[in-house]
Design a protein around this nucleic acid. Structure first.
Lengths: 221, 221
DNA sequence: ATTTTCCTTACGGGAAACCGTAATAGGATA
DNA sequence: TATCCTATTACGGTTTCCCGTAAGGAAAAT
């Protein structure tokens, strides 16, 4: 089992329980911080002193307060950690439940475990620690990886751009202009329409409003 | 200080910490439950046995699982409790931060304290316990301004119905039919358009897609 | 170089949304 | 009852969206 673990979690209540949970597993050499910047400092200092951390447990979203922070949240913290200590194991512990976002954590940031704050989260956290310690990955039960069912769609960056513009109130007929501004290659109105139609057809939708709601739900925008 | 307290909180991690926090204040005769229905049962039984609870600490939102529940969440639990034991003190402990909803708890359900799950929540919970014990009300710091910003909008159930229908792909021109089905009073297409225009004007939006995205963000649909 | 193929763009007719205005209904007041 | 006031509904013109078809253009294949 791990011996030296760093926990980044801004909620005091959650922080206390993670602490207690780790102690129950015999993990005692821990540091608990409430800010992302502090987490990075401790990782950097531990690395310099020759006794690096073995595991980082972090939340995704940290609330702003009077203390100005460089790192805005868990994603930026993990990115910074990856440059500093690429081998550090990372478990994300958050209430986020949108598959697209969680999936992206595994793919882009190569995290080792994701535990969702939910009914049995303390138990799940223990299971995650066991799994990650054995160099396996862990995902909370009930969170299916975006295994694309019959009606799901892999959103390209082009798709996301179009949907974002729509959700910002840009008229569909004006989207080509914005695409040209950004130098995005297919910029014709027909291409935009074609892509929107494809997305809606795959997902069984008929209106843009449905598409926006769906994308908000799964977290692609 | 209180002696007999009931805690209803589905997240194991949060539940553990509340437990520890109460123990630090010397409150030892507590019961911790993970479902609203269980909470109501324990309150009812304690009342019958002549040793009623003095305080209920409850979350607002409970996640559904395989156990079918009568009470859907904290609001329904508090309503049921009010009929059973009107004098019971109630502290709500939730991540909810929308002033309109929190205000409604104090006004409609006459709760005694609201502690938001945030950075210093364990400390705030202790403060709330002190305050409510002294028959005062408590509200987490940083939530005191109920003044709605210049561009915000209080969504009526009519608004939510319209927006829900749109997000389900119903054509705007077909919404009157659905409103009549449900027996909702203003059902004309012009009334729908008027209401949509009002919402968009207040929020500074121009398209329905923006409105859908906004409502998803703030959680009204 | 020519043809084929695929992708992008352009065009046009019909449906829906948008927006201002007018007609109607229901309730309150006198 | 008559009148006023408000809210709801109905209507028409314009814009935007929707969708099928056709034209243009680049890359690959022959």
């Amino acid at each position: 089992m791990f011996k030296k673990v760093l926990i980044a979690e801004d909620h005091e209540i959650a922080n206390i329980s993670v602490q207690k949970t780790l102690e129950e597993l015999g993990i005692t050499e821990n540091k608990y911080v409430y800010y992302c910047d502090h987490a990075l400092s401790w990782i950097r200092n531990a690395l310099r002193s020759g006794a690096p951390y073995e595991l980082l447990i972090t939340d995704l979203y940290f609330e702003d307060d009077h203390n100005e922070q460089q790192l805005s949240g868990g994603v930026e913290l993990i990115k910074a950690v990856r440059e500093l200590q690429p081998g550090l194991k990372v478990i994300v512990f958050s209430a986020e439940n949108r598959p697209a976002i969680i999936d992206d954590l595994f793919k882009t940031l190569a995290i080792d475990g994701y535990v969702r704050k939910a009914r049995r989260d303390a138990q799940h956290l223990k299971e995650a620690l066991q799994a990650v310690c054995g160099h396996k990955t862990y995902l909370s039960p009930g969170l299916k990886q975006t295994g694309k069912g019959h009606n799901s769609h892999e959103f390209s960056s082009f798709d996301v751009t179009i949907i974002s513009l729509l959700s910002q109130g840009i008229l569909q007929k004006d989207i080509p202009y914005y695409l040209q501004q950004k130098g995005i290659k297919p910029s014709g109105l027909s291409s935009v329409e074609k892509r929107l139609n494809l997305m809606k057809e795959v997902l069984g939708f008929s209106k843009n409003e449905q598409l926006i709601a769906y994308c908000k739900d799964i977290g692609v925008i």
